[in-house]
Nucleic acid binder design. Structure first.
Lengths: 134, 134
DNA sequence: TTACATTTGCAATATTGTTGCATTTAAAAC
DNA sequence: GTTTTAAATGCAACAATATTGCAAATGTAA
């Protein structure tokens, strides 16, 4: 955890470490309520600021979907914020049964051509039923 | 406008008509602030409820992207809510320069295979620079 | 150990959206 | 055209989510 923070040039504080530990306890993307449930004795404002910092530094990323679904997930090693913005591709799936949001890897990311648009970042979102729920 | 409402089984009220007129005045997706600017003498709660009704009946659809971007756009004719949920595919592009969100059509929607997942709905989001801003 | 910028915790405030309820209104039945 | 009735509206209160400013505490480099 400490190394993760240092690698991104962030100061190592007990709170940040414990927030990162929460993320590492979950396999899939989580929302702020889940984070808050895992922490005790925390300041909500500090949590918001911490999450914002983590997003900006590329430690975690946001996944939003219609219907007020907003989740957060640890980024893969190489997922620097700067790269997030440039030619980075994400694939997310949400299960309507268990509400879990999965960050997926695809060997061959489909090439989408937006006519007339210069694409920096591409995200594909699927919803349906996950393997566990079928 | 009236026909649009009737086609979806919604009652025709002056407020609903004027909200629909706002949408038709814009080419791209808009946010609630833009809608509010176009209306005078309106009730905020009624607006929220109207938009919710429009979304549920498939008149408009929501587009959300990381960074608290939440926009609304008129659906294409055939875009019933039910269909939204089943094998429906959307393509959206957001320009980082002008902040416009475009609803696009693609002749050949790329086929994405999520291993182990049963996909009901697929959405592709791109961000970058639009044609006007290049 | 010191120095200093960063982070934290708290209070106040802003933004966004919801619920309950009485009143008004659209549209169907007469 | 009237009546009827379920749906929509407007208002007040409230709930959830997020931000700002600032003093105190803390991490890190010198």
């Amino acid at each position: 955890m400490e190394n993760l923070l240092r690698k991104k040039g962030l100061r190592v504080t007990p709170f940040r470490v414990s927030v990162l530990e929460v993320f590492s306890r979950f396999k899939n993307a989580i929302d702020t309520a889940q984070i808050e449930n895992e922490l005790d004795n925390f300041d909500r404002i500090t949590l918001y600021r911490t999450l914002k910092t983590f997003i900006e530094s590329g430690l975690i990323h946001e996944i939003v979907m219609p219907g007020d679904i907003k989740k957060l997930a640890l980024c893969k090693e190489e997922c620097h914020h700067h790269e997030h913005e440039h030619n980075h591709q994400h694939l997310h799936f949400r299960c309507n049964e268990c509400d879990e949001v999965f960050c997926l890897e695809l060997k061959e990311f489909p090439s989408v051509k937006f006519p007339k648009f210069k694409i920096d970042r591409l995200e594909i979102q699927g919803t349906g039923v996950c393997g566990n729920c079928r």
